[in-house]
Design a protein around this nucleic acid. Sequence first.
DNA 1: CACACAACTTCTAACGTTGAATACAGTGAT
DNA 2: ATCACTGTATTCAACGTTAGAAGTTGTGTG
Lengths: 355, 355
Amino acid sequence: MSEDPSGAGDGAPARPARRPNVKDVAALAGVSWKTVSNVVNGTAPVRDSTRERVQRAIDELGYRPNAAGRNLRQGRSRLLALAIPEIRLAYFADLAHAVILAAKAHGYTVLIDETFAEPGHEQVVAEGFRVDLLDGVIFSPQALADSDLVAAGGRLPMVMLGEATLPVDGGTAAADHVVIDNVASAREATEHLIASGRRRIGFLGVRATETNGTGVLRHAGYKAALEAHGLPVEAFPAPAYSRPGGAEVVGALLDRFTGPDALDGLVCANDFLAIGAMHVLRAAGLRVPDDVAVLGWDGTEDGIYSNPTLTTVAPDLSALAELAVDLVLARVGGSTATPQVHTVGHRLIVRESTV
Amino acid sequence: MSEDPSGAGDGAPARPARRPNVKDVAALAGVSWKTVSNVVNGTAPVRDSTRERVQRAIDELGYRPNAAGRNLRQGRSRLLALAIPEIRLAYFADLAHAVILAAKAHGYTVLIDETFAEPGHEQVVAEGFRVDLLDGVIFSPQALADSDLVAAGGRLPMVMLGEATLPVDGGTAAADHVVIDNVASAREATEHLIASGRRRIGFLGVRATETNGTGVLRHAGYKAALEAHGLPVEAFPAPAYSRPGGAEVVGALLDRFTGPDALDGLVCANDFLAIGAMHVLRAAGLRVPDDVAVLGWDGTEDGIYSNPTLTTVAPDLSALAELAVDLVLARVGGSTATPQVHTVGHRLIVRESTV
DNA sequence: CACACAACTTCTAACGTTGAATACAGTGAT
DNA sequence: ATCACTGTATTCAACGTTAGAAGTTGTGTG
């Protein structure tokens, strides 16, 4: 009916055909558009009276500097990506939350890229995923081995989470890494089980394909603790660090929970494995923690509301996220410091599953 | 030591000082930059041999069209935002996952905005959050009432999830809405409890502040089912649709689960409330489902691995996400169709908690 | 040989922004 | 009255891309 092509309502001010730009503001304020820019960015001194006049024009038109123009001019987008296997996994949702907050504190916006742990997609990320759009990437790789990253020429500032992409020989890292002390935390967690009287403790979550990943390191700490007490070591691989993964492995392992050498403790490489494991154990008529003690990693909220509640190693996620954002933004700012491995804190939260 | 300011390694090709642009590609391929543009965008016909030559140059230089330049020229960023209360809540993580996939199918990238259900921040989103950067927004509001949205002039294509921002009087919606049939699904779920012999069924999750929100509609369906059977209605408010929220409410309500009129069923407005409720019920020595049947909404994976496993109403999330993306992109493309309310499917998944 | 047509080039312009350089006015000193 | 200086404000140019128009080849057709 109306001739207004914008389709906006009647009562409200009609949607302008074109978003206002600096020139519109300048025209309304009666100054040059550069002065408007100066007011917006504080680039050059502007007289108070002029500033007020410009500000009034900005408010009246609802002017917001166009991001594309600004990005083009400045060569920066103030956009970071967080590349993770899958946002549905609680740990990564927690991580994303922490990273979004940390980035916002620096005026940065975060966009989530799900890799689904596919080597192909992870390789794409490593090689400079959306280098046309992003200022930097925070990358939590899963399938990528240490050697892969070195091959990719660092086209885009990148920070790695976890040790997976570190050279096994201890050589120079290709990018900054942020990690928790997996060996120490695994030792702590295992010591906790031993202290509560467990003697036959299994480890769930070794991975054949990993050379330097989370699972390997946690397994190493677990092994060190048991060997220090002269106790037997028994490790099982997991296809995926997920609830179904944990359920599957433990399901195929149920006969190891009966007989004279029955397992009475299970160190799981993360909370999901532990919850999947507990689910199957319960279905098989085994009691947690009475028959088997179970613990995991990540400190996800699931462990607070699981039945029984779950003992877990919780990384200091906000510290991790802030550090990762600081490091990647330092590179964006031009830093060429030698990449390093940074360790953030963790703590063991003891709950019902290991009482 | 090296004079190379890029800081790149030695073996790998040094990071170029400047990212290649169309002119660099054109020079290498021996064609005009316009031809490169034509190859990249398919704007005009190009001979196969030429196309190949250009493609080789693109690959060799690792050329990727600069997003800022392209956005500026085309007036579109191919960026959508998904505004949700909090990514850590499993339902929203599932939703984000579905939206990311749906958007990717259209060449769009998604950026997550967490509103924390703060009215202030939700208002900002409604008024055209990052209109300078985004092509559109998919918005799952929590605190926003129906009237608020109308006031905001639609500066940015927006699709709303859920009924919260619909006018109560059934008037014209200010934007497209995508919903599930909350009344019908609540009736189904409640009928399921009645069919399994429950007679004293409570509802968890009404909200005083809502006029047209999810909780109100699910309560209406619940009420309709009970009244159809002449059974008593008993509803309780929840401070937040979270596990702690569910735990808190049920914790203060434990005496309603003993005595002659003891509740033997609990319809919870979402899975989180249900899991929090089950947690407290168990701690108080009550058995689910023996003493109390419990169910929720959202179909989150938590309900598969909870103890007991949880009966839930699962929305068809991929349909919901695809529809939302289609609708918002239609607006981006210039559609001025009258906003409508679109309903997607759901199904009741029966598990242990209501056997 | 004129003509149509395809493939490509050249040229112009514009998207909105901001750094660098420059112009301008007003003040105070010489 | 001239000059230097300071505080403001302005003009210029460029970021990388693409749309459009007009011109230039080369090839094949009538």
